Simulated assay, not measured.
Amino acid sequence: MARILPKSGSPFVIFSVVFFFIAVAVAGKPNSFSRSLSQKKIGLKKEKLSHFRLYWHDIISGPNPTGVIVVGPPSNTSVTGFGLTRMIDNPLTMGPKMSSKLVGRAQGFYASAAQQELGLLMAMNFAFIEGKYNGSTITILGRNPVFSTVREMPVIGGSGLFRFARGYVQAKTHTLDLKTGDATVEYNVFVMHY
């Protein structure tokens, strides 16, 4: 009977053959923690652009404020309140009056992030409670220089009908009570989603 492997090199040859098959097997498999998906198979249809006009009511006065300070500014702070952080659960309505139809809540926080002007870091979800968008959210994260006429912030994502959302919002102050600090802000949301 003929020998297939020479006696002198057999451990090296066997190791090489085994290593080759392991390398082929590993290289042929996708990563165990990721895989490519078809958009259609997970229910993503054609991407569309939607526009929403909402009114954001920041009520920081009275017995039931919708925005509360969670971190106060240090005592040596600037006139802008640099460092102040406020948690919010603000109503989103269809019109500028609080009596307008409630369509959602703006939940998150804003913080005074500028020393020379009133500039806020905004991080919030627009959580919808009305119509086909009930249970869906749009996530906004960005800089809000409060005294600019129109402020633009990015939409960085969402959930529900806004999965894979991207876009921007434009905020424009509708009313501001300088005594109480309460404000109503018009938000125009331009969002790409499936």
Rank of each mutant, 00 (worst) to 15 (best):
Q116G: 15
R105F: 10
V155K: 00
A171L: 03
G72S: 11
Y187V: 04
R166Q: 12
V150H: 00
G28W: 15
F21R: 00
T175L: 03
S34I: 15
G28N: 02
V17F: 08
V17Y: 07
S32V: 12
V155M: 05
M153E: 06
N31W: 05
G67N: 04
S78N: 12
K46T: 15
R35G: 11
G160T: 09
P6V: 15
F15G: 15
P74A: 09
M94W: 09
G142F: 02
K29H: 13
W56Y: 07
E186V: 10
V71F: 04
D89L: 01
S148C: 13
V17L: 13
M1I: 14
F164Y: 11
S112P: 04
E186S: 06
L120F: 10
S32C: 09
F128Q: 12
K172Y: 13
Y168C: 01
I69V: 14
L92Y: 11
L84F: 13
P96R: 06
T173H: 05
T173S: 03
Y168Q: 05
K97F: 02
G72R: 07
D89H: 02
G72T: 14
Q115L: 12
L178S: 15
E117Y: 01
M1R: 00
I140A: 00
F15R: 04
L176N: 04
F109V: 02
A123T: 01
F15Y: 11
Y133Q: 11
A2Q: 09
S61K: 01
L49A: 14
G181T: 04
V146N: 01
T80M: 03
V169E: 03
N134E: 15
Y110A: 02
V68N: 11
Q107R: 12
F52G: 09
T80N: 04
V13G: 07
Q116V: 08
K41L: 14
T184S: 07
M1Q: 03
V68A: 10
P6R: 08
S10P: 08
I59M: 00
V150S: 00
I140F: 02
F164T: 08
F126H: 05
S100E: 07
Y194Q: 07
M94P: 05
T77C: 02
R163T: 15
P11I: 15
L5A: 11
K172I: 00
K48F: 01
D182W: 00
A127L: 12
S8D: 15
S8W: 12
G72C: 03
Y110N: 03
T93V: 07
G142A: 10
M98W: 06
P30A: 05
L118E: 08
P154G: 04
V18M: 03
L102D: 09
M87G: 02
P91G: 03
Y110P: 01
T93C: 14
T80P: 06
G67M: 04
P73K: 11
